[in-house]
């Protein structure tokens, strides 16, 4: 399996505070990776660095061999915590926008998923609830045939039923050639879909292992291991 993401001594400082410290990480295609850690541990910083929304203070980050830039953005599909679609857009406007800018965007797939959730594409985003907006964004992001998906808290703001649908969407829509990074602190909900986990604590990488390995070695679920590692 080829490497899709490679971080070498990756460090990000904001003034005097260090958000991410000397992180070495290598992720392969075909894996669903849980990026786990308490609030403020550096999860979002790492995801922003991958997406070129922040520039590292030191160290390097490579996506399929490219530093974050135009080439990497073509193959990374990013779902931020924010609702980043302009309010005035109709759902269909947002689909056209994605279709224009991302060569790997599958319009048909997007409309199929909208239909499945009974979402009307002629509706304005302004008229949708926060949870529905999040679903629309997830549909857009997962309708791309990207090499790396970065999902920042994709299930944070939606109800449990929608949560199941979203996780299902993620599992069924990603392809063998792609890697999915899911950042969350709702571990129990996503534990079953993960192949690997990364624990981040106060900017440091605590653990990077496969889920099977952890279950074998530690004899416990990721959720209980998390509670142990991050005990307050």
């Amino acid at each position: 399996m080829s490497v899709i993401l490679e971080c070498r001594s990756l460090t990000k400082k904001y003034g005097s505070t260090t958000a991410l410290s000397d992180l070495n990480l290598s992720l392969e295609r075909g894996r669903i990776v849980g990026l786990l850690g308490p609030n403020g541990s550096g999860k979002t910083t790492l995801i922003k660095l991958i997406n070129g929304l922040l520039v590292p203070s030191s160290g390097t980050i490579k996506i399929n061999g490219f530093e974050p830039g135009v080439e990497s953005k073509k193959i990374v599909s990013y779902l931020p915590e924010k609702t980043y679609l302009p309010d005035w857009m109709k759902v269909s406007d947002a689909i056209n926008f994605f279709k224009d800018f991302f060569a790997d965007f599958d319009e048909k797939k997007a409309y199929e998923m909208l239909d499945h959730l009974h979402l009307d594409s002629s509706k304005r985003l302004k008229a949708l609830s926060k949870g529905t907006k999040e679903k629309v964004q997830l549909i857009l992001v997962m309708s791309r045939k990207a090499d790396l998906y970065c999902l920042d808290e994709p299930i944070g703001g939606v109800d449990p039923a929608a949560r199941d649908y979203i996780l299902n969407t993620i599992i069924t829509n990603y392809n063998e050639n792609a890697c999915v990074i899911i950042s969350t602190h709702l571990i129990a909900d996503i534990e079953n879909v993960l192949d690997e986990v990364i624990f981040i604590k106060e900017g440091y990488l605590q653990l990077h292992a496969s889920v099977d390995e952890i279950r074998e070695k530690e004899g416990k679920s990721i959720d209980s291991l998390f509670r142990e590692v991050f005990r307050c």
Partner: peptide, 18 residues
């Protein structure tokens, strides 16, 4: 301001453009 510096910036700055 709104399109580049607010939440919409998360979309604009992750488009494959310079």
């Amino acid at each position: 301001y709104k399109n580049l510096m607010s939440d919409e910036g998360y979309l604009m700055f992750t488009l494959p453009v310079k």
